[in-house]
């Protein structure tokens, strides 16, 4: 099966992330990834898209989110870029520290990093690259 390349550019609206997720996850299903990999990719994509729309672009409809995905037989690579101010990964508190366990937010990055093979931040934290290898 040939790799599937997908491209999305959309305004900061959480409702618009649904179609993006559905199309990428359909391609992942079609390429025969295992259930555990599908679970991890779906969760990571959800977290990344919500982060870009809500925390990156701060729901500003004048700003857009740019998503590129390449789904192949051996790996899935997804890049999500927002137009916000960016952030420094090293300054995000550890949500698993005892003093942070009762906080209601701040776990998205941890989950992405746990489930994906590689997570890379660039462009001052505005661009996120998620990579999942099949094996």
């Amino acid at each position: 099966m040939q790799p599937v390349k997908l491209k999305f550019d959309f305004p900061s609206d959480l409702a618009q992330t649904r179609a993006v997720q559905q199309q990428i996850m359909q391609a992942v299903h079609d390429h025969g990834y295992a259930d555990d990999a599908i679970f991890g990719i779906k969760l990571s994509l959800e977290e990344a898209l919500v982060n870009a729309v809500k925390h990156g672009n701060k729901l500003d409809p004048k700003k857009s989110v740019h998503v590129r995905a390449e789904v192949g037989a051996q790996q899935v690579e997804i890049t999500i870029e927002d137009e916000g101010p960016g952030f420094d990964r090293s300054k995000v508190p550890d949500p698993t520290a005892d003093e942070n366990l009762t906080k209601c937010s701040g776990r998205g990055l941890l989950l992405m990093e746990a489930y994906m093979t590689e997570v890379e931040y660039s462009n001052k934290g505005r661009r996120l690259r998620l990579l999942k290898k099949k094996n």
């Binding site: 969760l43 977290e47 919500v50 009762t102 776990r107």
Partner: peptide
């Protein structure tokens, strides 16, 4: 399936 936002709701 659940997300980190769902975890936040459970913590609340």
């Amino acid at each position: 399936h659940l997300s980190s936002a769902a975890l936040g709701m459970l913590i609340n």
